[in-house]
Design a protein around this nucleic acid. Sequence first.
DNA 1: TTGAAAGCGCTAACAT
DNA 2: ATGTTAGCGCTTTCAA
Lengths: 348, 348
Amino acid sequence: MCKRLYFCIQIEKMKRITINDIAKNLGVTASTVSRALAGNTRVSLRTRELVLAKSKELGYQQNVLASSLRKGTSGTIGMIVPRINRHFFSNVISGVEEILNPTGYTLLITQSGENLAKEQKAVDMLLANHVGGIIISLSVQTQSYEHIQRAIDRGVPLVQFDRINPDIKSSKVINDNFTGAYLATKHLIKSGYKEIGHFTGTLSLNAYGERYRGYAKAMSESGLKINESFVYKDTITREAGYNAIVNALKEENKPDAVFCAGDYAALGVLDGLKEMGIKVPDEFGVVGFANEPFSELIHPTLTTVEQNAFEMGVRVATAMIKNMEGKYDQEIETISTRLIVRDSSWRG
Amino acid sequence: MCKRLYFCIQIEKMKRITINDIAKNLGVTASTVSRALAGNTRVSLRTRELVLAKSKELGYQQNVLASSLRKGTSGTIGMIVPRINRHFFSNVISGVEEILNPTGYTLLITQSGENLAKEQKAVDMLLANHVGGIIISLSVQTQSYEHIQRAIDRGVPLVQFDRINPDIKSSKVINDNFTGAYLATKHLIKSGYKEIGHFTGTLSLNAYGERYRGYAKAMSESGLKINESFVYKDTITREAGYNAIVNALKEENKPDAVFCAGDYAALGVLDGLKEMGIKVPDEFGVVGFANEPFSELIHPTLTTVEQNAFEMGVRVATAMIKNMEGKYDQEIETISTRLIVRDSSWRG
DNA sequence: TTGAAAGCGCTAACAT
DNA sequence: ATGTTAGCGCTTTCAA
């Protein structure tokens, strides 16, 4: 009872140590303490040491809010991703943190949930929090860009990655989707498939558009014609992949392989093929994109394109820091992709 | 060239609209504007409408930093998880956001990477950012708790979840690990296995300790003796699971089934069994824990225990809000778990 | 090398 | 219903 009461009182009077406390304690002014703590300014070595010792003794902890308010900019960087639980995005985040953490910047992560309204709110929230920069990968829904422009107009450095809008003036980091798709399709061709279809997402999104281009290039280069009825758009989920393959194989002209712009769709394709008793890779070839963790665990293991997510995060963070240092950079950086051949496609 | 220069100048003179701008514009004081914007205080309807209109017109956006500094508390809640890319944790995060977003609180997410030092730094960073509360799931490494205590001593509401320390005074939300493990083991017994082993993590961590207890209870209840040489600790990764099963089956006394405290270990076990040509579930039964997405995709599909991660997030956020409203609550909430029977264990 | 003073933008007593 | 005033904790000129 008594203990409990004491505990409550403690909470009430809880006061954080400020630079003023340190200053009073040491008989100097807050300015001096501030300078000493900041390190680089002109303070006598003795004073600096005294301040450092005292601040440790009292358990001082900077009030980042006050500092940011005064300096007009916070050491926080906002990051908006469609979904945090996608392997690709969580690994990009890790890459970003790898670079940012040692610099003292703080990452504020939010999900748009592939939803434009949530994405807009997220941007505003970040701006209200005075983030020093915004890292974003657009939601599939995003077709209007005022919220992005709002950030840029505020002078907040912006870095787009993966799902980008090329028309927005900002740093951009993307995967080499074209080459990845090109290699994937080439591989199917080399493996002897002739009627190669493509299941993809929204072609207006850069990532999917490029994958389509890579697919088309490989086809035409090998003298194969694309049968447009083998190209399914908005087919990136497992269900959609399943439906698409069931559908495609009902037609008179059937594909004998399909390159999916995502592993989940490829998974659905494999579901459908298994159900229909079609042997993979003997009778049908499948390639995915993303190298989701499950792709090497399923049966047959899935040939797919590896995106170097962590590396992308590192580049994104580096670009952000450059931007914040005023080195505005509009260049597009491209991260290489790599084909991983597994059982679902190779009948060498 | 010219365009570029203009752009730079724009950035320099970029000035955010403050309540003072609105006030001047309207011929009232900042206090009035502040009150009007805050909504509930006593301001004439007319003034309020004027303020709202003007602020919209000028594109006003609150400076959260200033507000938080003044109010002494920010609308930000910090969350520390071991790894963001674990299915369980990212779903808890989604659950937390589900509750928090509509309330206007902002989530600051950080990863400890299962590393004590990073976890400590994360806590300090959150405190420096004056978060209104901290949500944490401890790293496996965490054996010292001063950093947690530091937060509590500062009067910052704390909610622990999943990987908790029961001795720390805070709200806690955990899975019903005991029942999950109990049901899993019971199921193996019912399926006819007799020599049931258990691969687990650090037993000092609540989650693993409880799973062991559930396993032990089911065994003793059925009159089966636990063979301690079938219990492997620190076995939660795929590699560890593989090594453990290879090892276990070299001994004279072999288990004929194993309940793993995690799906990754179970995956490793299946790897090992496949390699050794042991048939699952005919000759050997395997059950995991967590219902990772891959568990239903592998062959054979893995029997496992589902944790309701999203629901847990919802409860965690609710507890946090209660705490921040001063309703300090030390109760432990338990989220139910559920056995999902698949092919790796059932030979009914 | 240090101090004095002003102010970042907002809120909340207290007054009117 | 609105204005006045002070100050959250920090940084940063300007002066000494």
